[in-house]
Design a protein around this nucleic acid. Structure first.
Lengths: 341, 341
DNA sequence: CATGCTAAGTTAAACGTTTAACTAAACGCT
DNA sequence: AGCGTTTAGTTAAACGTTTAACTTAGCATG
């Protein structure tokens, strides 16, 4: 049979379609005997309930929307791709489908919303990374749960899964201090981005806690987009200004790679002359020379965590406001070294 | 009203629900007058037909499955991500939703199929990149159209959108020959991959057409996965074997980047000592120094093309077997230079 | 032995559309 | 006037589920 329906199963099992439905849901009203009989036939016919029919009566789509900006999705480091994979995996576990859509990074308040929102074809929304505020504001009257991952503009209102960026910043900076470095530069972009701001705060915390003096001159946060080219530019400014820098903490791996490029081009050896540590752990397979020390972010886990939260809310029909902090981990590779006196 | 249905619209417009439906489909049986009236109310109530209800009666899900392997999806260069974006865009145009799922690169014949296939929750399938044969074989009795992008294992059976790899290989190699190079190496991985094989064939064609002699010694296809590290390794083998190489054609940008790394590490200047050209054009924003000449592949366009084909098949209910060749384009940047005698 | 309870189902309405088949009015022709 | 055709709708069945309300038989209880 092409597409067996519940009727086919019912007829073959000599029961009503209601019974089949109850068997599918493992309802206790049905005897084990009947269950076994029906289950066998379901198996035999390869019956799967129609998502449309089910959705119609349940008034649920069974879909979760996953939104991020186009430039995040297309960026070279597969950061959000990993998050998506985590979400997709966990969605599978919970029998949800994921509808992935990008929104323009410069979404305007008059732009159309993703179709699945207009058509109410999602039961919930997971938003990954920084998305434009006009977009979020358009969502204010949404009736379904919304969860943010790696970004949280209105944290009173929505649940979110965030990286422990402050901790990560502290970890990276303390690691460099531990290694004897005194002049530790910070490279960052888009300081309005909460993640980058927090990483910088972690940096400052660690510097202060250690008794070192905070030197604003070796904090470069002039760039906007935290990518390779801008990492290169930031490093250039930094080293032209101050030759005595012996370590760099870059707000992410992408900028770190750019900075490394600058150092290589200018005869600054890593880690002999200068140590550098990144954040995110996205370039491990990239044959970056030397291997980049970094702060690992559990990307997949963040995706699964968001989906778990979502599934929980949907199952219990609650709209809670939970904040999950994903743990970070210091990864020491070859780009950081104890300072040689 | 929370979720207006066709009934709400009908009641408010004083027409039957059938009329509303016909208006939505712009059926010519309805007078312009009535259409205007109903349309105004649809607008006012912000009515959108329920995908579930519609899908139920049409016996269509309105969804298209998009499948690729996990390692392709997670690879550093956003090649397939661009293809997906193209597909997603065109899906939007045609009012389809995309369900993205990865399959394991080592999918076994007994592994479960993606859920949307079991539940018949897709009207068609787009498969991007090389996916395991066991997976494809499990699809043999599928009743929905399947389209391959950038891969085509059973090209008699399925439609596909392919890169004109032979042409691209010729273009890249001819470009180097044109620039006076005589000793042009080829770097490739996984020669079983049709794309890589064709790029190599293009290389061979161009060499032969030019009257140069084909030298198998400077063709390195020992590596498996065509990534950076392996590009580095391949370049190492090549240059240790033959110092006289003045140009390299890498089967893709990722391996080219690895090869560039090797050359830099070993004092081979680009392009002064050696020219190099890649394929795919995925590193343009990466601050690779020098900027990499390459063969551009219209990634987004391939995605849209696949979705256009799919929409066409689905609308006309035909199962055609079409092969689309996406055009390639030579991009000359700074990594290739006319040879200096 | 009438009564209530439990176990194991079944019946039927509802979910929100689409569309074939029907209707009713208006018009044109002979 | 009678008939056919066109126009502009309406009616009602169908799509494949879920689930509240109902049924029926068997059993225990006072």
């Amino acid at each position: 049979m092409a597409n067996p329906t519940i009727k086919d199963v019912a007829k073959m099992a000599n029961v009503s379609i209601a019974t089949v439905s109850l068997v599918v849901h493992n309802h206790r009203r049905i005897s084990q005997e009947t269950k076994d009989k029906v289950l066998a036939i379901i198996e035999k016919l390869n019956y799967h309930p129609s998502p449309n029919a089910r959705g119609l009566v349940r008034r649920k789509s069974g879909n979760i929307g996953f939104v991020l900006t186009d430039d995040h999705f297309l960026r070279t480091e597969p950061f959000y791709t990993h998050i998506f994979m985590g979400t997709e995996f966990e969605a599978h576990e919970n029998e949800f489908y994921i509808l992935l859509t990008t929104v323009a990074a410069k979404f305007k308040i008059t732009d159309p919303l993703p179709r699945f929102i207009l058509e109410r074809n999602v039961d919930g929304l997971i938003i990954a990374g920084k998305v434009p505020l006009p977009f979020i504001n358009r969502l204010s009257k949404a009736t379904f749960p919304i969860i943010f991952v790696d970004y949280s503009p209105y944290d009173k209102k929505y649940s979110c899964v965030l990286v422990d960026n402050i901790k990560g910043g502290e970890l990276a900076t303390s690691h460099l201090i531990e290694y004897g470095h005194k002049k530790i530069a910070f490279i960052g972009g888009d300081i309005e981005h909460p993640s980058i701001k927090d990483r910088l705060n972690g940096y400052k915390n660690a510097i202060e806690k250690s008794g070192l003096e905070l030197d604003e001159n070796i904090i470069d946060i002039k760039e906007d987009y935290p990518g390779r080219t801008n990492g290169y530019n930031a490093a250039e400014r930094l080293f032209k200004k101050d030759k005595a820098i012996t370590a760099v903490f870059s707000c992410n791996d992408a900028m770190a790679v750019g900075a490394i490029q600058y150092m290589k081009d200018n005869g600054i050896r890593i880690p002999e002359d200068c140590s550098i540590i990144g954040f995110d752990d996205v370039v491990s397979d990239n044959a970056i020379e030397p291997a980049l020390s970094t702060v690992r972010v559990p990307k997949m886990e963040m995706g699964t965590e968001a989906m778990k939260l979502m599934a929980h809310m949907l199952k219990n029909n609650t709209k809670e406001n939970k904040k999950v902090l994903a743990p970070v981990e210091l990864i020491i590779r070859e780009s950081t070294r104890r300072i040689c006196l």
